[in-house]
């Protein structure tokens, strides 16, 4: 695991941060015709925990993530990180969006450097680029690489800041199936090595089972948390471990698919 070694030698640790959502609700639109996307969400994510948000389309997964990052303000309730309320965009968080959102005039490498916020060594940046499989593409511009590569660059940028709370919004959705598995393991390596708290949004039940300490299943829009599933399996996990099968069936059944 070259990335884990690099991080160990660079001695990168982040201040572990806990995330607490207290009866959070969020509505969009004008009063009278507003849509309640989230209602009464209470959740506590311990420092260093990996929590995966799972739910149907439009249930407010992304909105929940944006609330933690401070990109949106909760209509009711409060969001706190390490006991401090989130009021604006919060620098303790790093976000990997659904889309790459790279700066088009900066090279792949410079984009990652932006995410590193100037504080990290070039070895760390190089190691991250290598870990996401972009060695040799450092000097390319975002439009010169494929969509999947750009998304991996965005992942490297999100990781490069080594934030206390890492928020990922379907970060691997645009990747091919094999790369997706590699990137999942990379994320776990980085989280484990640095001690960062991870909140990840996904549609993919297998991804959730592989990554999560706990899976938070959101109900239909505005219905709050439907269920919290604890995945109590040691890491590194075997994706085909028979012990995960009952959990998978349970989650599939929740989404209306009966195996």
């Amino acid at each position: 695991m070259p990335i884990a070694e690099t991080l160990r030698t660079a001695d990168i640790h982040v201040a572990p941060a806990s995330v607490r959502l207290d009866a959070v609700g969020k509505s969009f639109g004008k009063a009278g015709q507003s849509v309640d996307v989230l209602t009464n969400i209470s959740l506590e994510v311990a420092a260093g925990e990996v929590v995966v948000l799972l739910g149907p389309s439009g249930c407010g997964k992304s909105t929940l993530l944006r609330l933690i990052a401070g990109l949106e303000t909760a209509t009711v309730g409060s969001v706190t990180i390490d006991g401090h309320e989130v009021t604006g965009i919060d620098t303790r968080c790093g976000v990997v969006f659904q889309e790459p959102r790279l700066f088009p005039w900066k090279s792949i490498e410079d984009n990652v450097v932006v995410g590193a916020r100037g504080a990290r060594s070039s070895e760390t940046v190089a190691a991250l680029l290598a870990a996401v499989g972009l060695s040799g593409f450092e000097k390319h511009l975002p439009r010169q690489v494929s969509g999947g590569m750009a998304q991996r660059a965005a992942l490297a940028r999100g990781l490069a800041g080594f934030p206390g709370v890492l928020l990922l919004d379907e970060p691997f959705a645009a990747l091919d199936a094999l790369t997706r598995l590699t990137m999942q393991d990379l994320l776990l390596d980085v989280a484990q090595e640095t001690g960062a708290t991870v909140v990840l949004v996904t549609h993919d039940i297998d991804e959730a089972l592989h990554l999560a300490d706990r899976i938070v299943v959101l109900g239909e829009r505005g219905q709050g948390i439907a269920e919290i599933v604890t995945v109590d399996h040691p890491r590194p996990r075997d994706r085909s471990h028979p012990g995960l099968a009952p959990l998978r069936d349970e989650l599939l059944a929740r989404f209306g698919i009966h195996p």
């Binding site: 990109l71 889309e99 959102r101 700066f103 916020r117 800041g161």
Partner: peptide, 24 residues
């Protein structure tokens, strides 16, 4: 807007966003 959001997440101030993103 997505790019500006990304820049803010990476810790850019309004002033930096103006000079480094919006102006170019």
């Amino acid at each position: 807007m997505a790019l500006i959001e990304a820049a803010r997440i990476d810790g850019a101030s309004w002033y930096q966003i103006f000079w480094k993103l919006v102006m170019p």
